[in-house]
């Protein structure tokens, strides 16, 4: 297999090297890619969409249809991970392990009984480390991560950022909680059902915005059709339409990141996780 792999890799590599002869050098301002389609995006973005960040305007408007399916791709991944891994019925162990949060003492409790006081948290293996510093720092960090994520989503029109980046940060804030404490704590904050509904809602906001344009008599995803509803001119309507879909993307990405993490890290059992 090693020889086969080497031969295929070298063949592919030499084919690509051969083609490079006809490529423009790095940074050539007169290359076809720089002069054919893209100048319009750069020169007309303010006029046509009122969004200074050209990447955002191309992403969510000129090629917004691609981005809708891009969001759908991660939704597919979330659903696929859930379908593949989630286990509903599992045999409960004879006795559960509980640890006292303050002292770290671990006790065994027979199945079906509750621990003596609410200060105990459930763990799955006796060696689960307990680290006060990590837990505290992560808890302090989470609100700031989330605040910054909201800024990144909202400010995607004017600076690098947007729904994907902000959504990943929002997802990461919950994943940090799951990693520093355990998965049960994180799932208590954001239930599985709420998370799954969030994924579907996020992508639905995107596709629904497109369908709304269709219902208002324009082509799919032609945000200028929203102008009469939003009481702005058609160009501002495009800018607002982009914001709407960015919010949808943010919600969907956050939900899917958490969903995938929960399923993969606990092998679908939703126990204490990593």
């Amino acid at each position: 297999m090693k020889v086969v792999g080497l031969i295929i890799a070298l063949l592919a590599g030499s084919l690509l090297v051969y083609a490079t002869a006809d490529f423009p050098p790095l940074g050539d301002p007169n290359s076809p890619a720089s002069v054919h389609v893209s100048p319009r995006y750069i020169e007309k973005t303010m006029e046509e969409t009122d969004v200074p960040n050209i990447v955002t305007s191309v992403l969510a408007d000129y090629r917004g249809y691609d981005t809708m399916f891009e969001t759908t791709v991660i939704f597919c991944a979330g659903v696929a991970c859930f379908l593949l891994l989630r286990v509903y019925r599992r045999e409960e162990p004879q006795e559960r392990l509980y640890r006292h949060v303050l002292t770290g003492v671990t006790i065994h409790v027979k199945a079906g009984k509750l621990p003596p006081s609410p200060d105990f948290e459930r763990i799955d293996s006796a060696w689960t480390p307990h680290d006060l510093i990590i837990k505290t720092i992560c808890r302090l960090l989470i609100p700031f991560i989330q605040l910054f994520a909201l800024y990144v989503i909202a400010h995607g029109h004017h600076s690098p950022g947007g729904g994907f980046q902000g959504g990943v940060m929002l997802g990461a804030s919950v994943i940090v909680l799951a990693m520093s404490q355990d998965l049960r704590t994180a799932v208590r904050r954001l239930r599985e059902k709420a998370d799954a509904l969030m994924c579907a809602t996020g992508v639905f906001i995107y596709a629904g915005t497109g369908a709304l344009c269709l219902l208002l008599g324009s082509n799919f995803l032609d945000y200028s059709a929203l102008a009469p509803v939003l009481h702005v001119d058609p160009i501002m309507a495009r800018s607002h339409g982009i914001f709407m879909v960015e919010v949808g993307v943010g919600v969907a990405v956050m939900g899917v990141m958490i969903w995938i993490y929960n399923n993969v890290s606990s092998m679908g059992k939703y126990d204490e996780g990593l």
Binding site: A196, L197, A200, A207, G210, A211, F220
Partner: peptide
């Protein structure tokens, strides 16, 4: 006039509805 987009977006939108309906 919208057949070309309907044939893709109707199943697409329904996928999210199905996914949500599954929890209800």
């Amino acid at each position: 006039a919208h057949y070309p987009t309907l044939l893709v977006t109707v199943p697409l939108l329904s996928a999210f509805v199905i996914s949500a309906a599954g929890w209800v």
